[in-house]
Amino acid sequence: MTLILVLRWAAFGWMAFVAAFGGQIVRTDIGAAVLAVVFVWTLIVTLTPQRKGSAAIDLGLAAVTIVVGGFVEPAGRVLTAHPSFAGIYPTAAVAAWAVIHGVRGGFAAGAMLAAVVPLQYYFNGVTPVGLLHLETLALLGTMLSYPLIGAVVGIVTGQLLRLTALADHGARLEERARLAAEIHDDVLQRLAAIRRDLPDAAARAALERQERKLRRIHLDEDTPHEDCSLAEEIYRLVEEFSDVPVRVASTGRAPMARQTVTIVVAAVKETLTNVRNHAQANRVWIAILEDPEGVLVTVRDNGIGFDFDEAALTERGRLGLSLSVKARVENVGGTVKVKSRKGRGTEVEMWIPRSG
């Protein structure tokens, strides 16, 4: 969203420059009023968190700048190569919709702005149905540019989220492989040497059992598609959070593909990290409920909570939940729901299908 804010300010600066020095504004009073509104709104978007409905206001203002451009400029200006009053400012609203609502949202926002372009022609004294062939192509090109920009930004944003999740997952797998190699090269060899020197048969047998467990950990790295227990891995994860009292309840082992378990455990770890760093909670509950279709993992805390609004958080550039939790779970075909209110804690539900 930082890049979109930069685009907003650059586009506003261009609007002001065209209005002041382009010699293409015949209704300076209306142009100045629209510039003042755009400036105030851009400042609000930059300095304050956005509430529900702000994206709609943003898109509405973008549509107004397009229509007003036709009204304040000389008649027939839309048929010339002169810079327009609205410039590229409306594209910032389309890009914001694409980041918040994905490809469909960006395309829909672009389609709405495309629909008002003929009004710009009308208020500029040009009848769209009476255009020459090349002028019609120019109109259609302008109209198509908005939904195309929305779709492209939505696609790029989705790809970036997925690549971030995959890169993080790859780094974790690489670290696990390194640790497994260290276990195999150092720890297992030392255990074998110690076991040979032990005089007590019972002690040798106990040490041999531990050695087999460690070897199994190493071999697991070479069998990423073998099923393992999601519940057991989450129980192991909880041991890393000794500073936060966590209770885990499970209806079973919840066996799933090892790669899926690795990704889901990483999502649960990020959720617990958020609780530890931000929630001010003194109790956390994790429930692992399985059925034939999948597994539901719920992480609930009794912390301070917050007013969860994914669109507003994304608008402010706070993509932690999206990148660290939601993108991971969606990468294995699952879904994430977040429920939170100030003073009432937070609950994160992760649904993972068996097919994942």
Rank of each mutant, 00 (worst) to 15 (best):
L166V: 15
L148M: 15
E135K: 09
T127C: 09
G170C: 03
E174W: 15
L160G: 03
F85D: 00
Y121S: 00
A181F: 11
A92G: 06
P118C: 08
L119S: 09
G154P: 06
L119D: 03
A96Y: 00
A86G: 05
L148F: 13
A108S: 11
A86H: 08
G170W: 08
Q120D: 01
E182H: 14
V126Q: 02
A111P: 06
G125P: 01
V152E: 01
L132I: 07
E175L: 12
V103E: 04
M112R: 06
G158C: 04
T164W: 10
F85H: 02
G125T: 06
I88P: 00
V99H: 02
T91K: 02
I88L: 14
A93N: 03
L160N: 03
I88T: 13
G141F: 06
G150P: 01
I88Y: 01
R172Q: 13
A114M: 08
L134R: 08
A115E: 07
G130Y: 08
Y121N: 03
L166W: 11
L134N: 13
V126R: 04
A86D: 11
I155D: 04
G158K: 09
R172S: 12
L179F: 15
A109N: 01
A96N: 06
G170Y: 07
I155G: 04
I100S: 03
H169C: 06
V129W: 10
I100P: 01
Y146W: 12
A108M: 13
L166I: 10
V152Y: 09
A167G: 15
A114D: 04
Y121F: 15
H169S: 12
E135Y: 10
A95M: 10
A111T: 15
F85R: 00
R178G: 15
I155M: 12
G102Q: 05
A96L: 12
Y122I: 07
A167W: 10
Y121V: 02
L161A: 11
G125A: 11
T136G: 12
Y89Q: 03
A180N: 11
T164G: 15
G130D: 07
R176N: 08
A93E: 07
L113E: 05
V156D: 05
L119C: 14
